[in-house]
């Protein structure tokens, strides 16, 4: 074809809207975040910008120090708890939610009466706003909510079950207090249940599509060779849908790292650094305390984590895929 300058101009014009959006909103902010994370400033014009990187007021140092410099008080900007919460959430999502979803997908995908109807129902919560789901479960966990009502109907003393309501800072698992208080600390598990409830249908749908895509003759061959159903699942279906499992794992992990809506709805009111996820810190630094430097540092940590985990997961799945093939 002719490569005149008008042709090149046309190529550029077609790319222009996407390039503009992409570079200004996705690419440039990464560099801006890295730069801003080296400064401390609270005026949006940046007029009070002070360079703090590598010094004792370094933003990353602040985020990762558990106690204030005098060693007495807890640092409310500490990101460690939030990160561990996100990691636990990611692990639970990957190792509890995905196997369950796989089970559903296998049950449905191999042909069962009403499979589409089941799927349609399981997928429904995915579409409901997480804000609504957070509030709904907030009500379920309420001291006077249905969970405690059910427990007391079964004769369990409900007074010890705070579930997610703030109870004298004993909420985080590694603070040690939760052991003393019995079930005083339940917030982490309690917040995982809605995640499980909402997204299991999503993963089940993806995997179901995968199971449906397994060629019928492959399964036939397996059956003729005397495979049991379990062997069919393990040796044929699961290896075959590995690309979909990879997507599911990436979604589960990066989704957990980025999670915000549910936690903000359930715990945002407490404004308690003990029960938070990284995005809530980002929100607080941006909207409540105007500590843009710290916020940018949080964003950089999130970007790096998302990239690293996506890479790692791709790597893991690539190696396993090679072995199978």
């Amino acid at each position: 074809m002719n490569k005149s300058w008008t042709y090149r101009l046309n190529v550029l014009l077609f790319l222009l809207p996407a390039l503009l959006l992409f570079c200004t909103i996705l690419i440039a902010p990464i560099f801006l975040s890295v730069r801003d994370s080296m400064y401390s400033f609270s005026n949006f014009t940046g007029s009070d910008r002070v360079f703090v990187a590598f010094g004792e007021n370094d933003n990353y140092l602040t985020l990762f120090s558990r106690y204030l410099k005098d060693g007495s008080t807890l640092n409310t900007k500490y990101i460690g708890n939030a990160l561990v919460t996100a990691f636990i959430l990611a692990a639970l999502s990957t190792f509890v939610q995905l196997p369950l979803a796989m089970g559903i997908a296998l049950c449905l995908g191999k042909g069962i009466r009403g499979e589409r109807a089941y799927l349609t129902i399981f997928f429904m919560p995915v579409l409901i706003s997480t804000v609504i789901i957070g509030q709904l479960w907030f009500k379920i966990y309420d001291p006077k909510g249905i969970l405690n009502a059910a427990l007391s109907a079964m004769g369990v003393d409900k007074s010890i079950f705070g579930w997610i309501q703030s109870a004298s800072g004993s909420k985080w698992p590694f603070t040690g207090q939760w052991l003393a208080k019995g079930f005083g600390y339940t917030a982490l598990i309690a917040s995982f249940i809605p995640v499980l409830w909402q997204y299991i249908g999503y993963h089940a749908l993806l995997m179901y599509a995968g199971v449906k895509g397994v060629p019928a003759d492959l399964l036939e061959a397996g059956r003729l060779d005397g495979c049991t159903e379990g062997q069919l699942n393990r040796l044929i279906i699961i290896p075959y849908i590995k690309p979909i499992l990879r997507v599911s794992v990436i979604f589960a992990v990066t989704g957990s790292l980025k999670s915000f809506d549910l936690f903000q709805t359930m715990f945002g009111r407490d404004n308690d650094p003990a029960v938070s996820v990284p995005s809530m810190l980002l929100y607080r630094f941006t909207s409540l305390s105007n500590e843009y430097g710290l916020g940018s540092a949080t964003a950089v940590i999130l970007i790096v984590l998302c990239f690293v985990f996506a890479l790692l997961i791709n790597l893991i799945f690539r190696n396993r895929g090679d072995k199978v093939a």
Partner: peptide, 24 residues
């Protein structure tokens, strides 16, 4: 490939930089 980078970039990356510019 460059555009596909966007699949991994979390939306959080843009929150503060875009906020500062839009506010300005």
């Amino acid at each position: 490939k460059f555009f596909m980078l966007g699949l991994t970039i979390p939306i959080h990356a843009a929150l503060i930089p875009v906020y500062l510019i839009l506010k300005r």
